[in-house]
């Protein structure tokens, strides 16, 4: 009798202390009822049921860590296929995205820039060689897309111009040689890597856009205008 009461009380005190419910056995239905009421009351304080941003991050890390531990060969070959095929990116193009993307983007954001390959695209001139000569990111806009192009090691490199966090349009910061997000103190390098971010969840790198030289123009492969 005494022991049973204690187990019920322990569970209620755990709820009051925001601790995990201790292992045990609840025999008395009254104890079950009391615990249920305690849980409901505890959850009825304003803000009590909101997870901290640390908790949201911690849960995500654990979900990802477990996923990595699985390491099924199938998952890897599929991921390799996706990356090799260049599909890994674009929700824009209505392409199904493998969970491998979910795994890779937040944990190693700097290494897995996705490539934006529109299903129905065309090559359009976005900058001239002179415009890139200074090495600063050059902003271009097509009817469907905003991006930045820079010259790196003699080759033009273009990235999407919207922050991967919530889509704010990035601003070229010529002094720092980076792309700043005006919304949440986040910056990307001209090739799309996250330089810094105030966000607890590291945003994904910017998607890359295919480029090529055409005479004195630099062209990008962008969604076709309809």
């Amino acid at each position: 009798m005494k022991r049973r009461r204690r187990k019920g009380t322990e569970a209620v005190e755990a709820v009051l202390g925001d601790d995990a419910i201790p292992q045990g056995t609840l025999e008395d239905p009254d104890d079950v009822d009391a615990l249920r009421a305690a849980i409901e009351l505890r959850a009825s304080r304003v803000g009590a049921d909101l997870p901290s941003s640390e908790a949201v991050e911690a849960i995500k890390r654990r979900v990802l860590a477990d996923d990595i531990e699985e390491k099924t060969p199938a998952a890897f070959s599929r991921r390799a296929l996706l990356v090799a095929g260049g599909v890994a990116a674009a929700g824009v193009a209505g392409v199904a995205i493998d969970r491998a993307v979910f795994r890779s983007s937040p944990t190693t954001p700097s290494h897995t820039a996705a490539e934006l390959v529109p299903t129905d695209g065309e090559w359009v001139p976005v900058a001239t060689a002179e415009q890139l000569a200074g090495g600063a990111p050059y902003r271009f806009a097509t009817p469907k897309l905003v991006g930045f192009v820079t010259e790196q090691n003699g080759a033009p490199v273009a990235v999407g111009g919207a922050c991967t966090h919530l889509g704010c349009l990035l601003q070229a910061n010529a002094q720092a040689g980076q792309l700043d997000c005006p919304c949440h103190r986040t910056a990307f390098s001209p090739d799309g890597r996250v330089v810094f971010s105030e966000l607890a969840a590291m945003p994904a790198p910017l998607p890359r856009i295919k480029t090529r030289r055409n005479g004195s123009n630099v062209e990008a492969f962008v969604p076709r205008e309809v």
Binding site: E40, A43, D49, P51
Partner: peptide
């Protein structure tokens, strides 16, 4: 998380 918190009433379990 909010749904589960309403069922268990503590953070670690939630």
């Amino acid at each position: 998380y909010r749904l589960i918190y309403s069922k268990v009433g503590n953070r670690p379990d939630a």
